[in-house]
Each structure stands twice: as structure tokens, then as C-alpha cells.
Amino acid sequence: MNPTDADVAERLQDVELIDRLRAGEVAALDSLMARYSSRVYRLARGITRSDADAEEVVQDVFFTLVRKHDTFEGRAAVGSWIYRITTNTALNKRRGKRFEAEIGLEELLPAFKADGHRAGDPSFLLADWSQSPEQDLLSTESRRLLSETIDALPDHYRAVLVLRDVEGLSNEEVAEVLGETIASVKSKLHRARMALRERLTRHFGPNC
């Protein structure tokens, strides 16, 4: 079965599950939960960075599915619809709350000379920690640093990073979920990754 056939089959199964849920069938709810609850939680946790908020988001999303599923007409893939309401609900949770100051992305982006070459200390520019031992890359300290930096990314940048690099959506799918252009998604993804890379490079240093 090629991917297109698989997508179509999955969409039909989802629509059938929604119909059965519409008829009040508990087994359909269990199937939809088995299919989507982990993804919804992972995405919500990735965006809100809070266990409690993620739980609230996953409840809100499934309540919407149960209460308003009769407004869902099956035109869009259920998966895309769920990603969209999860992302919006998670971003709304963050809105209006005070968090630690977001990082200044500009400070973490590479600097260039007028001729387009990198600017900066040569030993830092050559720092390549990618082959460092796994125990260093995955140490408690580096995981904490990475986690803190992800937390401090502007919300929409973090949403793009999670949708792309954790959930594995395409740029086109992320653009649809967020209502942004593909160019904007790619730009946010790139800047978020560069900011994280810079933090890690400063952590591991030129003598890695």
C-alpha cells in the first residue's frame, strides 16, 4: 500500500470512528483515544511546557471532539483538525500568563562579515561537538540547558519546532495548522534550531 492509500484508509477509519462516536459508542471513543491522545498530549506538553496545562489541553481537545463532533463534517483529515485545535488551545493557555523572559533570538543567531563569511572567534566557529560521547550530549546538565532554551523560545517558534521536529509534520502541514505561510514556518524553524545550536555550542565550548 503506498502512502496515499494509507492516508485515505486512515481518513476513512477516522470518519467512521467519528460517526460511531456520534452514535454514542464508547468503543469509538477508546479507539480515537488510542489513536490520538498520546499525540495530543505530546504536542500540548511540547508547546505549554507544563504537565498540568498539557492535561487541561488534552481534556479540552477531547471534550470538543465529544461535544462538538456533530459539527465536524469529515472534510479535513481528523489528524490535521486535532493538531490544529491542540495547537491553538495550547497557545491560548500560554497567552496571558507570565513566564520567564523569552530569549533574544538575535543574540543566538550567527553573525556575518560584510563579505558573507562568519564573524567570531575562529576556535568557536570550528567547534564541532556533534561527535562528542553520548553521555556528554545526554548529560543531565545538557538536557536541562536544552529544555530551558526550548522553554524560553517564543511560543510560535516552539510550536513550529515541536510540530516539525517532534511530530514530524511537513512544512506545508505545519503552515496549515498554524495558519502561517510555509516561508514563515521554515524561517521560525531555522531560527529556533540555530538558537538551540548556539546555546549548546556555548555549553560544550570550542574544546569539545
Binding site: Y41, R42, D51, R118, L137, S142, R143, R197
Partner: peptide, 21 residues
Amino acid sequence: AYLRTYRKTRELASAAARAEM
């Protein structure tokens, strides 16, 4: 060096941002 560390960052970030329910 930038390409290698950028690629590794993507891998590490993907793992760091993943939370199981």
C-alpha cells in the same frame, strides 16, 4: 562544523521536547 552541530541539535531537541502521556 555548523552543519554537523545543527543536524545534531535537531536530533537532541526532538528528544528533549518529546513527552509521553
